[in-house]
Design a protein around this nucleic acid. Structure first.
Lengths: 189, 189
DNA sequence: TCACGGGTATGACGATTGTCATGAGGCTAC
DNA sequence: GTAGCCTCATGACAATCGTCATACCCGTGA
């Protein structure tokens, strides 16, 4: 199923962080979840837990970036609202197929670490920036002016993140449908 | 400012949770932050940490509800976009005046506890529901149809929560301004 | 006066946390 | 062979976690 023990640890860390939060995830749990040798953690991550969580967060961000880019390849006639529906739809699939236990790793880590002087903060900001840039680039490819594209990207990601949180609490994907439907005219207008 | 030790503990818990997350907040820290006698915690909160965090989360939700209701009293000509700008504006004030360390307690606790079988989950859902209902009620008072009001309330809170997260990571209130400006035509239309 | 109980104080418990020290396998290079 | 490095194994460390047990203080009511 997976790659090297190191990659598995990063992946497992991302999965655990987005369900239990960064502080609620212990390195021992990550090692066990990844079926990785316990002694390898300190070998691959001499920077300790911060390094592991930082890489997990960036992994999640790059995963989201890839999802965003995938839309252009699947859509016959790409539109901003279509991209947003694409992003929201993938979270609806996640929730309906795997339940509401897992959220967004960036949000999870931000909630725990943004207020503390953690070193992971920088990687969280970097991850969000990559995600926003990817969305903005896709919008520009749909002939949206660059300035407006950046603003819409911020709004799309904000609304999506909030809807994810709301959906998890309500255990209902309705918020995701709501934001997608409501924002559609603004995005395309 | 100065209430009973019990109230101070709930308030302090909310403040700590929204900066370090629920798992990252220890009861000892709460007791110290509240300048409360350490032995009083188990006396006022026989339900343990879950009870304390649960009450803190509901406290935060009711605080948000009151903020929402306050708009009608201050605005001369209330509009949906005005209400949303009001909500976003208070968070801009929070960030510019007190820094980006503190976020929304509901989001913070959700990130940590929504994926675990915690008893606090129910109170998180209840808190969000109160907040959404308050916003919807204000919209109805502005002659927005009930069904549309509920949908817009979900969208407003989702966008706001996501913008809060984005603002904290970027250490910039721009996302809050962006969502407020972008959503305005949809809300009033 | 004395019993009572709400509030406070203090210490300890077992469990878990992140991190480190130490050492053993197993492979390549010489 | 054997030296050396990458990888893994194991145990222990101090610190912190949530929780509990116990006892003290002190105002009130009988």
């Amino acid at each position: 199923m997976e790659r090297t023990p190191r990659e598995r640890m990063v992946y497992s860390c991302a999965q655990l962080v987005r369900t239990r939060g960064a502080t609620g995830t212990s390195v021992r749990d990550v090692v066990e979840h990844a079926h990785a040798p316990r002694g390898s953690f300190q070998h691959y991550f001499p920077g300790g837990k911060d390094q592991l969580v930082g890489e997990a967060v960036l992994w999640g961000a790059d995963f989201a970036v890839e999802r965003v880019r995938a839309y252009r390849r699947t859509a016959r006639r790409p539109t901003p609202s279509g991209l947003f529906r694409h992003m929201a739809g993938q979270w609806k699939d996640e929730f309906t197929q795997r339940g509401f236990e897992r959220g967004c790793p960036i949000m999870a880590a931000t909630a725990d670490l943004a207020g503390t002087g953690s070193k992971v903060r920088a990687q969280l900001a970097e991850g969000l920036r990559r995600w926003e840039r990817a969305v903005a680039e896709e919008l520009v490819a749909m002939d949206v002016p660059a300035r407006r594209a950046r603003r819409l990207a911020t709004v799309m990601i904000s609304a999506l993140e909030g809807a994810i949180m709301s959906a998890r609490l309500h255990e209902d994907v309705a918020p995701l449908t709501a934001v997608a439907a409501t924002l559609a005219p603004v995005l395309d207008g």
